[in-house]
Nucleic acid binder design. Sequence first.
DNA 1: TATGGATATGCGGATACAGGCATGTCCTGG
DNA 2: CCAGGACATGCCTGTATCCGCATATCCATA
Lengths: 118, 118
Amino acid sequence: MKVTREEVFRLHAQICKALADPSRLLIIVELRHGSRTVSELSRAIGAAQPLTSRHLGILREKGVVRAERDGTFVRYSLSDRRILGAIDLLLDVLASQLARQGLRSSAARRLRPALRSA
Amino acid sequence: MKVTREEVFRLHAQICKALADPSRLLIIVELRHGSRTVSELSRAIGAAQPLTSRHLGILREKGVVRAERDGTFVRYSLSDRRILGAIDLLLDVLASQLARQGLRSSAARRLRPALRSA
DNA sequence: TATGGATATGCGGATACAGGCATGTCCTGG
DNA sequence: CCAGGACATGCCTGTATCCGCATATCCATA
């Protein structure tokens, strides 16, 4: 099975696109601490169940998240912890940007932990 | 200056969105080794100049890239090396996915260095 | 200041995505 | 087998994005 250079970039962009939505980032942050059912995530991100399901479908399709059935529930979990590393790095980049723009730097430095515990 | 939690997630998603395009990833990879002019990047990614300029505008707007004038040229460079770390992590995630799907694992393991030198 | 190279932007059509609503599917307990 | 809870999906509308083309802007030099 061969994968062309262009295909790799296309897939790489697909993964980035999966992360490129506030609700989906919220989902990922929520999954940091363990697996969650759809209704739990729905409540956590404050979105309707069908919408949450759709976002999870996108994340699942791009391999960011994994689903497993548990009775009538479906439990979702992160399929690769390195994704957390990536979004944390980008969050750090954002913090630097905000700091440069005049946000109190103490607040900027606290950005990541604040979101983690959320 | 205060930044709400929702605003942070929106901005975070904006940065991800800036990375969520094959041409823009190509640009970033090309900038890994130093600054480049628009026409250099245009040739490197095989896109028309106006399109390249547009992609650069998006990257600049989201703070991924920085521009500085140099005569009639404009030299672009990465504004934060941590972005490379983030996309490398995601590339590793992709490599694992492909490996799991039956790509020869040796090829998968070589994915990142192959793209780096490109 | 006029010209030409380098870069940016306005416009338009095609495509893709977000979100709301209704409905379908899957599973368990009775 | 039936009912109901948990989840997924089809349809629709508005909005954003991609890309090509033409054109505008900026800058150095003559």
